[in-house]
Write a protein that binds this DNA or RNA. Structure first.
Lengths: 221, 221
DNA sequence: TATTAAGTGGGGTTG
DNA sequence: CAACCCCGCTTAATA
């Protein structure tokens, strides 16, 4: 790993373009060719680039160009002045940290606690594929009617639309020989820890059920 | 900013708990109390914490504890051995990153080039407020019919639903004394550089117009 | 506080 | 095995 303090500027080209004006910053270049540029604020870098080919070039004006190039994007850092440079050896066998996956976790939890969706509810499928994308949970209510459940931590207007799309696709679907569920009767539901007032309104207007999950769901069972 | 190489371990408590086993890593502590722990792979840190209160404590076994504490989460780093430490002064007035080609830029551009929406089109308003959020552009077609235009770089299913929500709200709106536009006749349109096939289908199904913007729009005029 | 937009995303699928 | 396509959550920024 190379730790550098430098007066630098940077240009990124990829999915979107961005320019980092000249300034003094810390640059971290790792063994795998990834790089990040930091100022003295926030844990997030000003700009960065994942693993890429690293090339160093000399500019006519005396500055140095560090070019990180991958197939579809590139980051060009101009080093106007190198103020400090440290080469450090770190062991390469460090294990990564586990991801958050909060929502998926909630989905898992709900699939084990379907009673929180409603009395007598059961789970027929997770990530049930419709023509308009996968429903988080396909549940069956007490009388066996299918309910497309969109799981969210915080539900906003779009969640209602998602439900409607899923129901739309399910009603249009061919008979699924493997599942004896009458998809034509499908209804929608939003299950979230927090549902915004406008979202509640919008859901009611479109006959989408709503269920609030206790904030401390993690600690239940 | 403090740049440190240390044999360390870490425990995070917040949305979920996580443990970072002992190992030699680079630690970056910034002026605002944010911190990130890096190994020699990937631009992303192994673990991090945003701006927080920083406390240093001495453990009974001789190691040092760096505790970053904020309202709802905390990261405790145990420094078993400090291998290197550098204190660096960086200017705090960093200009930051400038992005280009964002959706807002496209919206601005379109408001100056309404002809790309259709022949004879004009722009009546930007960010026109409806009861269901602001429409990117409220345009008038050649015969003066209002068109709610949702601008996207890449349009996906949700864009269609946004249009529908806006039209829905506009049709429900009271007469706006300042604008002599017949909102009851409003129609929807998606203007995007890229519209996904399924989104095209979905838009057609709901009578939402679609317009493709040239990829090099930034270079036009 | 509430909402939208972006991510230099991520996973599954297909050649 | 790699590229690509599609879609989704999460977070940041803005009003």
């Amino acid at each position: 790993m190379k730790l550098v303090i430098a007066d630098c500027s940077a240009i990124y080209t990829g999915r979107g373009d961005s320019v980092l004006p000249r300034g003094v910053r810390a640059i971290m270049v790792k063994a795998d060719g990834s790089v990040s540029i930091h100022n003295d604020k926030s844990n997030k870098p000003l700009n960065y680039m994942k693993t890429a080919n690293f090339i160093e070039e000399k500019n006519p004006d005396g500055s140095t160009a560090w070019i990180f190039d991958s197939r579809k994007e590139s980051l060009a850092i101009t080093i106007h002045e190198l103020l400090m440079s440290n080469e450090i050896e770190l062991p390469l066998d460090d294990p990564g940290l586990e991801k958050d996956g909060t929502e998926k976790h909630l989905q898992e939890w709900l699939s084990k606690h379907p009673e929180y969706l409603g009395e007598g509810f059961t789970i027929a499928a997770q990530e049930y594929q419709t023509g308009n994308g996968p429903v988080d949970l396909l549940a069956l209510d007490a009388i066996g009617k299918p309910i497309a459940v969109e799981v969210k931590r915080i539900a906003m207007l779009g969640a209602v639309d998602q439900c409607r799309r899923y129901i739309d696709a399910m009603k249009a679907a061919e008979f699924d020989g493997e599942m004896y569920i009458d998809l034509l009767r499908a209804e929608g539901m939003i299950a979230a820890v927090d549902i915004r007032p406008k979202t509640l309104e919008w859901a009611k207007k479109h006959n989408i059920h709503t269920v609030i999950i206790p904030e401390n769901w993690r600690e239940i069972e």
